[in-house]
Write a protein that binds this DNA or RNA. Structure first.
Length: 430
RNA sequence: GUGAUUGUAGCUCAGUUGGUUAGAGCGCCAGGUUGUGGCCCUGGAGGCCGGGGGUUCGAGUCCCCUCAUUCACCCCA
């Protein structure tokens, strides 16, 4: 056993896997840009109050999952961000972003921290990418955000995902519904489990989320939020659905989808993957018009956004075999040194090749020629360039095509030319 | 925080009712005649059998504790 191991709920990402991350991140950058979203990077930690106010103190995230710490005995409590939205909104408000333009479309990729027990698809440090559209939360804005999210999935060739959507109504709707729910559940108080009892007072909507089998029947009979929506909320929701249909985005209305963060209102949505096991939500989001005021803004900042779990996304892609073609290590040419007294010359040649933009590898472990060739083969090099005493004296080098096994004797100039041609056909893999 | 699960070489795992120097495959390293890969063959390195305590003549195998893993609950991405 090693002396040190990675902290519970954290993990290392080695080169082969890192290549997959880069691939996905690249797609996110390209598509976000295509939809007119610009990248924002906010600090990894914030004042604890930001999350308490923003996410809501009744939520599990704030109640028991935050990594909080005091920088010094007199300092204010800080917290490793458990989600991105509050930080983005804080950044926007602090810098008065909305005064420069009425609408801001931002996206991010970043690490988040939550002190939960790890399990499949759940880490204490994990990553999300997401987008926040600030300034407008019209159905068009909601559709814009959902469409971007779905486009990422589509472009990555993911299949078998399910988009569920619901409307949480506006503030008035929810106040009326909340009362109705309390009225419905109160007589059954004795049947409810502890957490549901607590929610009955603080946030009865979240009782609907419970997976407790004993409560399913009771929950099924509860009044539907949908029936408490006023005309404006209904029309708003219908318009969102209209946009999705227009774009061929399949969805399913789930009247019990409420989502765990306090700041959501009106449209809320979630995407699940059938490949993931218990933690099957790959992404989700919704409208959060009230967040800005909650954070002290004097003006309303309507907003809508989504977040997608990178690990869960990668996991689903893995299961669906979508990474088969990635091979990040393969160099174009492997410089093979006959004897170690020619190593310095080999290094010099390798440098010239690299300087010319050719992805080149050379053995630094001083192994035998056979071992070098085996290595070249193993890492999928396209060519081997031999450095022997003959090459050094004549200035002509043996270049072997490792796919066809053809070998030719060329001047270094000709080698460079040939490899550059070959590199142009097959762009450098990063 | 609760429950269950697993913990033997770098990786995936065997290890019979407790019995001598703990094994395999893959990977790694070196060779298979003197400057050349993939297949194949040979050899080698590498394990306080998670840690501690106990039962026993004897424990990788049984018991207790502990640490860690994984999965699930809660909840979320």
């Amino acid at each position: 056993m090693p002396q040190y191991q990675a902290v519970k709920g954290t993990r290392d990402i080695f080169p082969d896997e890192a290549a997959r991350w880069k691939f996905v991140e690249g797609m996110v950058h390209v598509l976000a840009s295509l939809y007119g979203f610009s990248e924002i990077r906010t600090p990894v930690f914030e004042y604890t109050e930001l999350f308490q106010r923003g996410i809501g103190s009744t939520t599990d995230i704030v109640g028991k999952e935050m990594f909080s710490f005091l920088p010094d005995p007199k300092g204010r409590s800080l917290t490793l961000r458990p989600e991105m939205t509050a930080g983005v909104m804080r950044a926007a408000l602090q810098n008065n972003l909305l005064s420069s333009a009425p609408v801001h479309k931002l996206y991010y990729i970043g690490e988040l921290f939550r002190k939960e027990r790890p399990q499949a698809g759940r880490q204490r440090q994990f990553s999300q990418f997401g987008a926040e559209l600030l300034g407008v939360s019209s159905p068009a804005a909601v559709a814009e955000v959902i469409t971007l999210m779905m486009q990422v999935f589509e472009s990555l060739d993911l299949h078998g995902l399910k988009l569920r959507i619901n409307s949480l109504g506006d503030t008035d709707d929810r106040i009326r519904y909340r009362e109705a729910l309390q009225g419905y559940f109160s007589p059954f108080r004795d049947i409810l489990d502890d957490s549901s009892k607590e929610r009955l007072e603080k946030n009865p909507l979240r009782i609907l989320d419970s997976k407790n089998p004993a409560l399913q029947e009771l929950i099924a009979g509860a009044p539907r939020l949908y029936d408490y929506l006023n005309d404006a909320s209904l029309q708003d929701f219908e318009k969102v659905l209209f946009y999705l249909r227009e774009r061929g985005i399949a969805y399913e209305i789930d009247y019990r989808l409420v989502r765990g963060l306090d700041y959501y209102c009106n449209t809320a949505f979630e995407v699940t993957s059938s490949e993931l096991g218990a933690q099957d939500a790959i992404g989700g989001g919704g409208r959060y018009d009230g967040l800005a005021r909650e954070l002290g803004s004097s003006a309303d900042v309507p907003a809508v956004g989504f977040a997608v779990g990178m690990e869960r996304l990668l996991m689903t892609m893995e299961k669906q075999g979508l990474f088969a073609a990635l091979d990040s290590r393969a160099p174009l040419v492997y410089v093979v040194v006959q004897q170690q007294d020619l190593f310095d010359h080999g290094m010099q040649i390798a440098w010239q090749l690299r300087h010319a933009g050719i992805k080149t590898e050379i053995d630094l472990a001083a192994r035998s020629m056979k071992a070098q060739m085996r290595e070249a083969n193993k890492i999928n090099a396209s060519f081997a360039l031999f450095i022997g005493s003959m090459e050094q004296t004549t200035g002509f080098y043996s270049l072997k095509n490792l796919i066809t096994s053809e070998q030719t004797l060329l001047s270094l100039e000709a080698v460079l030319e040939l490899l550059q041609e070959s590199a142009a056909k097959e762009p450098l893999k990063l």
